[in-house]
């Protein structure tokens, strides 16, 4: 039987929500962070995420292995990333617009091929019981995390290292900050950008697989509530810093868990407004951290949205 936690349930639920809900935001924002570092923005990750959710579920169902599903989702994500990368390498083609188009195309294809997958039950990803030490069931439940969450955290740390300490990171930043300088140094601009977009696609595909194979763990046409788009916003307020992306994803996930948690302890009026809290919060943070005159700190200078 569960212990009666009273109002303590709210912070606990927010913590649990952070750990459960944040992972898709984390993966998409890390992928987008790399893409944007190279000087491109891909708004189409929302479509990639939805396709990844479908492909991941289908892959897991057909092979019987949820991890193969995750891999399939990632690989399809790479395909979408490559498509975006190549199309935007054509002269005069706008990356924001192609992103919006691929959002529509990815979602459409996912719904098109996903019809037969709504019914079957696919094997789910396992969970890591980080709360096994506690004898309070709610704590155990809140601290049950997906291996993907841990992998996401490790990727965030790894990316920080790559950006700061490695040649690859240096080239990536140079391509994103000044194409002219990179060209003068003899670095290949387009291949770097296409590669960075493909990585972003991979991460968004995996984020989709998390939705369909772990939490909420189902494939249907309402599975994404805009995670792929919001994550693009999170990158901006995370200032293109992978660890800050991790923090932003946690913050957004926790804010999303606030609505149901408040209702469960009796704060029931105006739940729509509580549900809007994550969006208001994001907007406020953008408002207070942006500046009219100077470009955003840490922003890749070739990036169209910050010019």
């Amino acid at each position: 039987m569960n212990a009666d936690l009273g109002l303590w349930a709210v912070p606990l639920a927010v913590l649990g929500g952070m750990l459960r809900v944040s992972t898709p935001f984390l993966f998409v924002s890390l992928g987008e962070c790399v893409t944007e570092k190279s000087g491109r923005i891909n708004l189409g990750l929302e479509g990639t995420l939805v396709f990844g959710a479908m492909a991941g579920y289908g892959g897991a169902y057909l092979t019987g292995s949820p991890w193969l599903g995750v891999l399939a989702a990632g690989l399809f994500g790479v395909l979408f990333g490559l498509l975006h990368g190549f199309l935007c390498s054509l002269p005069k083609v706008n990356d924001i617009a192609v992103g919006i188009a691929l959002m529509l195309l990815g979602t459409g294809l996912a719904f098109f091929f996903g019809k037969p997958l709504i019914q079957p039950a696919a094997p789910m990803l396992p969970a890591i019981p980080l709360g096994a030490w506690s004898d309070v069931p709610q704590v155990r439940a809140a601290l049950e995390v997906s291996p993907l969450f841990v992998i996401g955290l490790l990727i965030a740390i790894a990316l920080l290292f790559v950006f700061k300490r490695t040649k690859i990171g240096l080239v990536l930043r140079m391509v994103g900050d000044s194409a002219d300088a990179a060209r003068a140094m003899g670095y290949p601009i387009l291949p770097v950008r296409i590669g960075a977009t493909a990585f972003g696609g991979f991460m968004a595909g995996v984020a989709g697989a998390y939705l369909s194979l772990y939490y909420p763990g189902s494939w249907n046409e309402a599975i994404s509530s805009g995670q792929g788009l919001i994550a693009v916003a999170l990158v901006i307020f995370a200032r293109w810093n992978p660890l800050a992306c991790f923090g932003a994803a946690l913050l957004f996930g926790g804010a999303g868990a606030l609505g149901p948690a408040l209702q469960s302890v009796g704060v029931t009026e105006g739940y729509y407004l509580f549900y809007a809290a994550p969006y208001v919060l994001t907007l406020l943070i953008l408002f207070f951290t942006s500046s009219r005159t100077k470009a955003l700190e840490g922003a890749p200078r070739e990036l169209s949205i910050t010019k």
């Binding site: 809007a276 907007l283 942006s290």
Partner: peptide
């Protein structure tokens, strides 16, 4: 404030619907 209009309009759409 220099807030990106693409992102801001998207966030505000969610808020308006709520």
């Amino acid at each position: 404030r220099g807030v990106n209009e693409t992102i801001a309009s998207l966030l505000m759409a969610y808020i308006a619907i709520a």
